[in-house]
Structures are given as C-alpha cells and as structure tokens.
Computed example of a mutant assay.
Amino acid sequence: MTEFSGRIERLLDMVEKVIIMKGEIPSDPTMWEIHMSGGIIRVDAEHMDRTTAFRKQYLKTFNTPAPGFKDDWIPFVQVLGEMAETTVAGEESELVYIAKQIMEKIRELPITDDQGDAGTGRALLRLGGYLCLSSTRIGEIVEVMHYHIAPNVLSTTMTALGYKAEGTRPIRCNGKLYRFWWFKESIINENADPSEIPEEKISEGDA
C-alpha cells in the first residue's frame, strides 16, 4: 500500500465518496465527481492523468490551493478509483440530444416498400429488417432543424445508440444509386401508413 505524505492523507480523509459518471455512448465524456467535505470537484476522466484540472477545481471550490502531489498523484488517483462507484450520467450529451431529436423526426415519416418512393426521400424503405432513408433526406432534416452536426458524427452517434447499422449502404432507385442510412425496424414507429406518401413526383435529380 502506498504511503502518502501527511498533507495527502488529510486530503484523502476529506473524500466522502467518488462517482464516475459515464455517458450513453463511448464518445460521451466520462466525469469523475469527487465528493469532499465542503464541496464537489468534477474532472473529466481524460484529465485525471495529471494534477492541473484537479488543482484548478480544488482552488475554485475551496478558495485555497490543493497540496503539492509530487510523485503521489497517480497513486492518489488509484485510491480514488478504488473508492469509486460507476453510474450513467443523468444529463444527455449534446450529440446524444441532437441524435434523439432527429430520430423523432425520422419516425414521423411514412413507410414504403416501393424503392421509387424511397429514392425521393419522402418515405422510409422497408428492406431486410431495416427501414432505410436516403442520406440526402437526412441532410434536409438536419438543416430544417437548424442543427450543426457533421453527417459522419451523426451517423456514428446513432449507431452507438443502437438506432442504425454502421455506415451507409447504396440502394438502386429508378436506375440510380443513392446512399441510405439503414435504421433498425424495431426502432422506428411502424404505425405510418404508406398511403400517406404525397402524390407529387420528385425527379431523380432532386432526390
């Protein structure tokens, strides 16, 4: 067992509990909450390998500098880790929030078995256990909702949430290949009626 200096021992004595909060998806930040007598210090896990973030938060919380660690920092973090309980963060990250909001809009779309309709982006195409939507239509939804998120980031986030298959795959519609996002059929609300697809036609060049 590591022997700490008296100042670090007193610091450990102040620690009441440690909570490590993970996000819903791997790219979400993992936060360490160190509950101490008189305050809570929150540090991103990516910054727990060095003292800087901890010392800044300690000074902000207690209005006094944390003791110097010298070579004690990593053993100190190991002790905190042994004390820690792990939980899922109650608040969604911005990426998860955006992905969920866009998913709600996608669920509102009608469903079709006609690849011609799917090529226009006006409907989800039912295919092999998936409901597919053109990449162009996804971009339009993002733009209308005024979100600023790169398509690859949104795709990765939705895949991590279990909404869709990884990446995009092409489907031939009306003689042209379109890139589609393949959503799991169980995720989409299937109450939509294919007859609700608007009658007006959209040319392939607009899809």
Rank of each mutant, 00 (worst) to 15 (best):
M1S: 15
I8Q: 01
R10S: 10
R10C: 04
L12H: 13
V15Y: 01
V18F: 02
I19K: 14
I20Y: 04
I20W: 05
M31A: 02
M36T: 06
S37W: 02
I40H: 04
I41E: 02
V43S: 00
D44P: 07
T64P: 04
P65I: 01
A66I: 10
G68I: 10
D71H: 06
D72F: 07
I74L: 05
L80T: 00
G81R: 10
E82G: 14
E82A: 05
T86Y: 13
T86V: 13
T87E: 14
S93A: 07
E94F: 07
L95D: 02
L95K: 14
L95Q: 08
K100G: 00
Q101N: 14
I102N: 01
M103T: 11
E104F: 09
I106Y: 03
P110Q: 08
P110N: 12
I111T: 10
T112M: 06
D117W: 06
D117K: 12
A118H: 03
A118D: 02
T120Q: 07
L124G: 00
L125C: 01
G129W: 09
L133V: 04
S135A: 05
T136M: 03
R137D: 00
I138G: 00
V142E: 00
H148Y: 12
I149P: 01
I149S: 03
A150I: 11
P151R: 08
N152C: 05
V153R: 07
L154F: 05
S155E: 03
T156L: 11
T156H: 14
A160W: 02
Y163I: 04
A165E: 15
G167R: 02
R169W: 10
P170I: 10
G175V: 15
L177N: 13
W181R: 02
W182G: 05
F183T: 04
F183A: 03
N189A: 13
N191T: 14
A192H: 10
E196A: 15
I197E: 01
E200S: 10
K201M: 05
E204G: 14
D206S: 11
